[in-house]
Design a protein around this nucleic acid. Structure first.
Lengths: 219, 219
DNA sequence: AATAAAAACGAATCTGAATTCAGATTCTTT
DNA sequence: AAAGAATCTGAATTCAGATTCGTTTTTATT
């Protein structure tokens, strides 16, 4: 029976199955090192030899786990999106939403995405965007997750915006989601902006703008 | 006297001065080919040999004009930002704004940036963002231009938003600007979004959201 | 504890695109 | 129209990393 990793699910293209625990540790070490390094450098700037050094492994052992550098990125992404998904499921629940006003619910969406984009996975996310159009549709789990979040939000709030029909509300919430991810992805790459995630100003701005867009009366 | 190019200003780091017209044509050919190619590929994917072939030049002649591939990108960027700047100066004027309501003025800002992000320079812009933090501060002309646009807007509209003080109006217009560029830059990289620049839906959404954010009454 | 399968190791090899360079050609100047 | 400067050319070179591979070490099985 194959040893099971506590970190990574099986069956990623180009990621070899680990039969011994030491290779699981090896693999997980590379993944941890990569996720961290991507918060400082671009993927192109990562050298296999540096990753090996950082995780106490050898270059050769990298290639016993990953077919090539691309397969390695796939592993980083699967792990990260998976962890993000778990955090969302835990934090963004129908139950929590029920106790909120429509404005607070919108705010909590902003905060949720803000937390994700400033998490330790931000580097992986940043590098994932330019690969969205790859043939294996790597962003599919993100889209699915976004749909779930929107459904959660919408199910709790379909009648909460009196200015708009149920259908219009759905469309508008989808636009809100896109505005938030647009602003945050932008902030990930840039650094000069007046409003930024670093000091929370971008989240404050988004909250106000989205409340206004959804016709939520001022408190 | 040095031959003067009709396309590129002088004095870019690593771009050699052209003394004969054939080298100006050569250089401009490379620049045109690059701007076009970047609407299809990433800068890393551009091969000097392909650029040479596309512009009817040789690999060697590339290096008689540009110190290296980076200097070439700088040239692409200077040329593009310059052309964008000229278009903005021509289209986004105080005079034009005077004939508009505050809502229409906001709309015209969205349209202006939408036009830029879907112009033939979109590839250069896409590649410029990840280089914003370079030591030579390549984005400086863009920031200057943004300030000018905001000043033009603000000067024409400082009393147009009764909900907000003059200072608050300024801050808010700056946030509007950032929302627009965020959404559009995002659209440049991604492709799966519901709202996109391709069909104008993203511009419509932005217009509505920003009007609401600025407290412009519905028409 | 012997054997075989996995895995680790890192120096050597490979790769492919950027860059160079030694003529060959075209301008510019006198 | 000759001389010298500028430019062009593309095959050869360089180079930074990714990838491989022959050995050695560790683990699992008997």
């Amino acid at each position: 029976m194959a040893a099971t990793g506590y970190i990574l699910k099986d069956g990623i293209l180009g990621v070899f199955e680990a039969r011994q625990n030491r290779s699981v540790k090896n693999r997980d070490g590379f993944i941890r090192a990569g996720i961290e390094a991507l918060n400082t450098k671009s993927f192109d700037e990562l050298k296999i030899s540096d990753l090996a050094a950082a995780s106490g492994n050898s270059v050769g052992s990298f290639y016993t786990r990953f077919q090539d550098k691309d397969a390695y990125f796939r592993a980083l992404r699967v792990y990260s999106l998976d962890a993000i998904e778990r955090e969302i499921e835990a934090d963004f629940t129908q139950i929590a939403l029920r106790s909120m006003s429509s404005g607070e619910a919108l705010d909590s969406l902003v905060d949720l995405l803000g937390a994700i984009f400033s998490s330790r996975f931000r580097g992986v996310l940043r590098e994932s965007y330019p690969r969205i159009l790859d043939a294996d549709d790597p962003w599919a789990p993100m889209r699915t997750q976004a749909q779930k979040v929107l459904k959660t939000l919408h199910d709790g709030l379909e009648d909460a915006f009196p200015d708009y029909s149920v259908a219009e509300t759905k469309t508008r919430l989808s636009f809100c989601f896109q505005m938030i991810t647009g602003a945050l992805q932008n902030d990930l790459v840039n650094n000069y902006h007046v409003f930024t995630l670093k000091d929370g100003t971008i989240l404050e701005g988004l909250k106000e703008a989205l409340r206004a867009y959804m016709g939520v009366p001022r408190s």
